[in-house]
């Protein structure tokens, strides 16, 4: 009977340990959304929101200082287009709304789908760079040989820390045509 007793003892610890293993395995996966959330809250990895922000009504323009925002672009590997900003940089006051156009030209004879991904440096500025309209929010269908002008409307939050006087917004435009076709035929392209 003492054998029996020992056996049950073991099983209670084993159960707990196995549960910990399962929990830690799940935790490993849970870290992915947690990391994303953490980045969203702190600008940790310099990725901006992919949803439009709404400029508050009474937002004051801080004319006491100007900030330079630079734009850099790259095309993803294998993406058959050229992609560049219309201007290299803009100088603006926090609170002021600016529009910058990005030009894209599909060099292929077939339609493609593009997705632009933003990255901001310094990462901490990410939290204060608010886009009210951006081509990066959605996948961009590009017709064969299409030339498109894609606007990006944004402002800098007046709470932007004083020590940030220059920030860089980078876009990489990837060709995701294959991924989309691979995934689901039913997913309709936004027209």
């Amino acid at each position: 009977m003492s054998e029996q007793h020992k056996q049950t003892d073991h099983s209670s610890i084993i159960t707990k340990l196995l549960a910990s293993v399962v929990i830690m395995f799940a935790f490993g996966f849970a870290l992915v959304p947690l990391y994303e959330k953490f980045c969203e809250l702190t600008g940790f990895n310099g990725r901006t929101d992919n949803t439009a922000s709404v400029a508050s009504e009474g937002m004051l323009i801080d004319t006491s200082r100007t900030v330079t925002v630079e734009f850099t672009t790259r095309t993803g590997r294998g993406a058959p287009w050229s992609f560049r900003p219309e201007v290299q940089s803009v100088t603006m006051h926090p609170g002021e709304i600016k529009v910058v156009n990005f030009l894209v030209e599909n060099h292929m004879n077939d339609a493609r789908v593009a997705q632009a991904l933003p990255s901001v440096s310094p990462g901490t500025a990410t939290l204060y760079l608010n886009k009210t309209e951006c081509f990066c929010f959605e996948q961009q269908p590009l017709a064969a040989n299409e030339k498109a002008v894609m606007p990006m409307r944004f402002y800098l939050d007046p709470d932007l820390p004083d020590d940030i006087r220059r920030l860089t917004l980078s876009y990489v435009m990837y060709d995701i045509t294959d991924q989309i076709q691979g995934r689901s035929q039913t997913a309709s392209r936004s027209e």
Partner: peptide
């Protein structure tokens, strides 16, 4: 017990990123 399952998770993500089209670590996705 605390970290080997996390390693198992990471290698699984590498596997799915490479062979099953997930984008845990792929900037393009």
């Amino acid at each position: 017990i605390a970290v080997m399952p996390v390693l198992a998770g990471v290698v699984t993500m590498v596997l799915t990123d490479k062979f099953f089209g997930t984008s845990f670590f792929n900037a393009a996705g």
